[in-house]
Design a protein around this nucleic acid. Structure first.
Lengths: 397, 397
DNA sequence: GTAATATGTTCTAAACAACAACAAATCATC
DNA sequence: GATGATTTGTTGTTGTTTAGAACATATTAC
């Protein structure tokens, strides 16, 4: 009698929307493809692709460029490229800095400003600084661009529907309506999500996870371990947007108490600060830390790396058994851990999960560098246009 | 340049397929709805719904019945009901019996035969017995029905693409092409999947998970603990179909070695046989076990129940942190555990995961009874018709 | 320089849902 | 018990969108 879910019927205009979106996303992801490749990969008719690309060009979402010199028989096909007009701002508030960026379609990071902070910012600090930086950037990118909004990568749990930061432990933010406040301060739509979730999206679309339908991503930062899941080609969010918290899965049932209140979380055992402390360095960046770890003549460092690798393997065993991914992407210092002892982690990942699932999986390091969060965050702002390109109005904002 | 994933463009006929599928699925899930409700929940025009229902009736996938006496103003709307023609067989080979069923649209289990076995069946045993039972049932259901195929619920890991049983530990099956052999023996298409995964689908569509987009299901059986995930409204399979093995997530890092080779798996600590042993009973069924556990005057039983509940909570903590579901469905003896000490599990599930995720989640018992696996398995055979109703040809098979 | 090949372009056809107008069947009211 | 309001089924027409065919164009191969 009662109809449980209420999925939607489709009409002709939905087809159009879907096909426009498809073409735009293909160009976005590939950063430029010949029109002929679009006909092949979509299965749509040449004339249809022409009409779709035509509409997208008219809306300035795409531009067409001279064909590649491709040494192929037949009439050359013009290149469809992401248009320069639509841009998004990205922001990543952290404990020691706020980073803001300008990103175009095709994940082109046009500008990036790191604003160092003397102390961990309160929400209003973060909003004020971000709004200032963005105001400045709007001046630079005012003409010829249309701003789609601001994507925010937050080191914490973010409620998907309204961008409220439920908990960002290291920033000491609890239930802060960051998105709403930044929206009020800038007049731009703000979309916020967990940083590692956005890293996952970025790696999935543009990085080490391109074309992989089932992957998990784990990122090790100074403040803990986050992650994200792509399953069946779709980003997994969970009901409120908190999915992917691999950092708080159990790896030591008799371990230490985590700041989350539970015992033996991955991020209490696998920690960047322990590695940094062993190197004797202070204030290292990722590359320096990795170089120090790879130096390789220190038994105590190697022991700690192996210890942490073992714990990481426990978390991965759970994740592989639950999610059966084909790829595990490691970012941040987890990538460095893997770089030091790949054979160890590979062996554990191959042997600890159920054999059938273990066979299918391979571990790789993340492919995107410092711009990963900018790209992922911008993706949030691009999402609505990528889903419905005809909603894009040139003049707006 | 290279296009990573190759999603498909849509044409007009895809709209038709989608809408036919949508209407059929709504009727299937709800086991009968007024046509007017279909217009409302799909958002499609009355005339469109009329055409869609008309085509489905013509194909004998639906039938229309006299309107309900509904005491509502306006012209009564005829009831769209699942048609009796399409049926699927379901099979569930187990260590002590093979169960075969006949299932119609709307999850109506028309017939169910449990064939007891003296000993755990080999694959060829299972194929022979199943083929015999299905042959018999084909006689009974020959006229007026069209058989869509056989769905198999396997207590083990099943490769999705070809139905090879990679590992069914309790049956001692390893890399057995069960689906292919049963196909050869019966001449019917066979679709096989993990039993708990099919239980998840059944509960999601027809049971305790109706209308819930993000849920996890854990089932406790005599042979171990299985599970499944629905995320964003979609069943999560992983790359090969092995997703959902919550039974092999770590709950005791210094625990016993599991038959899977790893240490401290959920299913080594949370075991039906320990509970059965404490009751002193032999050969109990689920209801008897639950009654014995609920009797409540035995301290040793309660202690063991609480011990197992604590371990179950650890697994759920991981699952909630990773997947952020809104509902946890417990089936089999896990449901009985919950029945004995609901306050204990509720408290742990509310306190152990990250607070934001814990808030959103509630624990419930499974709603479907002994027919759960029959319904889930049949769903596999129905899948292709539910996705593309116009592929259904009345005469076939 | 000509043929082969692949692709863009244009015009027409087919599929489909939306819409409007009307008919039918129920309930509410007097 | 008749009349009006309301909801829904039915029918014929319209608009949107992709598919397809025919032709034009630009490249390579020989």
């Amino acid at each position: 009698m009662s109809i449980p879910t209420a999925p939607d019927g489709r009409g002709n205009s939905d087809v159009r929307r879907h096909n426009l979106s498809l073409v735009l996303r293909l160009v976005h992801q590939s950063r430029g493809v010949p029109r002929s490749a679009l006909t092949r990969s979509t299965g749509l008719n040449r004339s249809t692709i022409a009409a779709l690309v035509g509409e997208l060009v008219e809306r300035e979402l795409l531009v067409e460029a001279e064909p590649d010199a491709s040494n192929q028989v037949g009439r050359p096909s013009p290149l469809a490229l992401p248009g320069p007009r639509p841009i998004a701002f990205a922001v990543n508030p952290e404990i020691d800095a706020i980073t803001v960026g300008v990103v175009g379609l095709g994940a082109t990071v046009l500008r990036r400003i790191r604003h160092p902070l003397a102390q961990s910012p309160s929400v209003s600090d973060a909003v004020i600084v971000t709004a200032q930086l963005i105001d400045q950037l709007r001046g630079e990118f005012g003409d010829g661009h249309t701003v789609l909004g601001i994507g925010a990568a937050i080191p914490g749990l973010v409620r998907a529907k309204d961008g409220v930061v439920r908990l960002a432990p290291h920033l000491h933010w609890i239930d802060e309506p960051f998105a709403a406040e930044l929206e009020a301060a800038t007049g731009l739509p703000v979309f916020a999500a967990n940083d590692a979730n956005l890293g996952t999206r970025a790696e999935s679309i543009f990085g080490a996870g391109r074309g992989v339908a089932d992957l998990i991503y784990l990122n090790g930062g100074a403040s803990g371990i986050g992650g994200g899941i792509i399953s069946g080609g779709r980003a997994l969010t969970g009901v409120e947007g908190y999915a992917g918290e691999f950092g708080h899965t159990v790896v030591a049932t008799a371990g230490a108490v985590c700041h989350c209140g539970a015992v033996g979380c991955l991020e209490t055992e696998v920690r960047r600060d322990r590695l940094v402390a062993l190197t004797g360095l202070t204030d290292v960046d990722s590359d320096e830390l990795e170089a120090a770890l790879l130096a390789g003549d220190r038994v105590d460092i190697r022991t700690e790396v192996l210890r942490q690798t073992d714990f990481l393997a426990v978390a991965l065993r759970n994740a592989v058994n639950i999610l059966n991914p084909s790829t595990i992407i490691l970012g941040g210092f987890l990538g460095s851990l893997y770089a030091v002892a790949p054979e160890q982690l590979d062996a554990l990942v191959a042997s600890q999960p159920l054999a059938a699932s273990a066979e299918a999986v391979s571990v790789v390091r993340s492919a995107l560098g410092v711009n990963r969060l900018m790209i992922g965050a911008a993706e949030l702002a691009f999402a609505s246009v990528l889903e419905d390109p005809s909603s894009f109005v040139i003049g707006e904002t």
